[in-house]
Amino acid sequence: MLAVHFDKPGGPENLYLKEVAKPSPVESEVLLKVAASALNRADLLQRQGQYPPPPGASSILGLEASGHIAALGPACQGHWKIGDPVMVLLPGGGQAQYVTVPEGLLMPIPAGLTLSQAAAIPEAWLTAFQLLHLLGHVQAGDSVLIHAGSSGVGTAAIQLARMAGAIPLVTAGSQHKLQMAEKLGAAAGFNYKEEDFSEATLKFTKVQANAGGGFHKTDSAPLLHGEPTTSSAGFGQSLPRDCDPRGPC
């Protein structure tokens, strides 16, 4: 099968298609014939040589994908059948024609989404959902400050906050990014390079969803007094050297 490969760290010009062995599912794994795979910041960092994939994970890029089930491992529980369209969360390997996936990481594709659209759901959108609802417990009427509002997780968080009846506010590093966030539903945006966003949001922000990981920890401190909630995901600028971005630090 063909897979995206690079021989040395660097820019996208180092990527090329390489013939590699097609994986086979074992135990409770399935073999997915990949239709589409999304690009995440973790892929960029891996390509740049800033961290290796986790032990045992594929060295092929790609943390999420969509496609059709091509084969079932011998211990699969019968929840899926060959040919089913699915989207998947991966530790790596999505940017290839085939990838093996634990059965428990398969998800049905929501009605109305194409395979290409579904490939961008598992990593960014489920992370944003976790930040807002499982960690932040966002309710209708809450104001939510979303750092890195133009990132993949940030753009998902804006739309999910609106769907929950909350009021999304964002920070970003340029006017262009703020305009994009506002088109997606952000009620207001703040350029953290040019202004102090903490004072403007202090009075009414209950939840912070930090899609940029290490960004803005100092500037956000005034917002954490009282009863606000903060939840964080991503890489940002302060990732510890021994921290695996795909797992807990």
Rank of each mutant, 00 (worst) to 15 (best):
Gly247Ser: 15
Thr229Gln: 12
Gly214Trp: 06
Thr201Val: 14
Met107Asp: 11
His79Met: 09
His225Pro: 00
Thr155Phe: 06
Lys203Glu: 14
Lys206Cys: 08
Pro240Lys: 03
Ser37Arg: 02
Ala57Met: 07
Pro54Arg: 09
Gly94Met: 07
Leu17Lys: 03
Tyr51Glu: 08
Ala164Met: 00
Asn40Ser: 07
Gln237Lys: 03
Ser24Leu: 09
Ala42Tyr: 13
Val101Ile: 10
Gly213Ala: 07
Pro222Ile: 01
Leu224Met: 09
Ile109Gln: 06
Ala186Thr: 02
Leu178Asn: 01
Leu178Phe: 04
Ser238Tyr: 11
Phe197Cys: 12
Gly214Lys: 05
Ala70Lys: 12
Leu223Cys: 12
Lys203Val: 06
Gly185Ala: 01
Gly173Leu: 11
Thr229Gly: 05
Gly165Trp: 02
Leu106Phe: 08
Ile121Val: 15
Gly62Glu: 10
Ala187Lys: 13
Ile60Asn: 08
Gly62Gln: 12
Ile60His: 11
Gln46Ala: 03
Cys243Ser: 10
Cys243Leu: 03
Thr205Gly: 05
Phe6Ser: 05
Asp196Gly: 04
Glu64Ala: 07
Thr114Phe: 02
Gly93Glu: 06
Pro54Glu: 03
Phe235Leu: 15
Gly226Ser: 09
Ala209His: 03
Thr201Gln: 02
Ala3Glu: 10
His137Glu: 11
His5Cys: 04
Gly11Tyr: 08
Leu169Phe: 14
Leu184Gln: 05
Ile158Asn: 01
Ala166Cys: 01
Arg241Asn: 11
Leu239Ala: 04
Ile121Gly: 03
Val101Glu: 06
Gly10Thr: 12
Glu13Trp: 00
His5Ser: 08
Lys217Ser: 01
Gln208Ala: 14
Ala111Ser: 07
Phe6Tyr: 14
Gly213Asp: 09
Thr155Gly: 06
Gly56Leu: 02
Pro53Lys: 00
Ala120Tyr: 00
Leu239Gln: 09
Leu61Gln: 12
Ala181Ile: 03
Glu123His: 05
Gln48Cys: 01
Gln77Glu: 01
Gly62Pro: 02
Thr155Ile: 06
Val101His: 03
His225Ile: 14
Val138Phe: 04
Pro168Gly: 04
Arg47Phe: 08
Ser220Thr: 13
Leu45Lys: 07
Glu19Arg: 13
Glu195Lys: 02
Gly136Met: 08
Ile82Trp: 01
Leu17Tyr: 09
Gln48Lys: 14
Lys206His: 15
Gly236Trp: 13
Ser37Met: 03
Gly141Ala: 09
Val4Lys: 07
Ala57His: 07
Asp196His: 10
Val138Trp: 02
Ala120Gly: 00
Lys81Phe: 01
Met107Glu: 14
Leu2Ser: 06
Pro53Asp: 01
Ile146Gly: 07
Pro245Asn: 10
Val88Trp: 08
Val138Arg: 07
Ala36Val: 10
Ile158Asp: 00
Gly136Gln: 05
Phe6Lys: 02
Leu32Trp: 08
Leu90Arg: 04
Glu13Ala: 12
Pro110Asp: 03
Ala124Ile: 13
Ser116Tyr: 04
Ala124Asn: 14
Leu89Arg: 05
Asn191Lys: 09
Ala164Lys: 02
Gly10Asp: 11
Gly67Ser: 07
Gln179Asp: 10
Leu160Arg: 11
Asn40His: 08
Leu113His: 05
Thr230Ile: 13
Pro110Lys: 06
His216Lys: 07
